[in-house]
Amino acid sequence: SPEEIKAKALDLLNKKLHRANKFGQDQADIDSLQRQINRVEKFGVDLNSKLAEELGLV
């Protein structure tokens, strides 16, 4: 269901964000992850996106 997909995506992105902060990645990478999280919260996951591929939806 779209809600489950959204939850999985947010979980994955939050893990990536945590790792980025923990290991001191570029601020641009961290900002990009934050924008992705905001986009998923607002609009859900686009099944044509790279994120959908990472989640194994495509």
Rank of each mutant, 00 (worst) to 15 (best):
S1R: 09
S1A: 08
S1Q: 07
P2I: 10
E3G: 07
E3P: 05
E3K: 07
E4Q: 12
E4H: 09
E4S: 11
I5H: 07
I5L: 13
I5M: 12
A7Q: 13
A7F: 09
K8S: 05
K8Q: 09
A9G: 04
L10G: 00
L10S: 00
D11R: 10
D11M: 13
L12Q: 04
L13G: 00
L13T: 00
N14F: 15
K15D: 06
K15L: 12
K16C: 12
K16A: 09
K16V: 04
L17A: 01
H18G: 07
H18I: 14
H18R: 14
R19N: 11
A20E: 02
A20D: 01
A20T: 03
N21A: 12
N21Y: 15
N21K: 15
K22A: 12
K22Q: 13
F23L: 13
G24C: 10
G24V: 05
Q27C: 07
A28F: 08
D29A: 15
D29Q: 14
D29K: 14
D31A: 11
S32C: 15
S32D: 14
S32R: 14
L33Q: 01
Q34M: 15
Q34V: 14
R35S: 09
R35Q: 11
R35C: 12
I37Y: 04
I37P: 00
N38S: 13
N38G: 07
N38M: 12
R39G: 06
R39D: 15
V40F: 02
V40C: 02
E41L: 13
E41N: 10
E41S: 10
K42C: 10
K42W: 07
F43W: 12
F43K: 03
G44M: 01
G44P: 01
V45N: 01
V45S: 01
V45P: 02
V45Y: 02
D46H: 06
D46R: 06
D46C: 11
D46N: 08
D46F: 05
L47Y: 08
L47N: 04
N48A: 09
N48V: 05
S49E: 04
S49F: 03
S49G: 06
K50Q: 12
L51K: 01
L51M: 05
L51E: 03
A52K: 01
A52E: 02
E53G: 07
E53R: 13
E53F: 14
E54P: 01
E54H: 05
E54S: 06
E54L: 10
E54A: 07
L55I: 06
L55P: 01
G56S: 05
G56R: 05
G56L: 06
L57D: 03
L57W: 07
L57I: 11
L57F: 11
V58F: 09
V58H: 11
V58A: 11
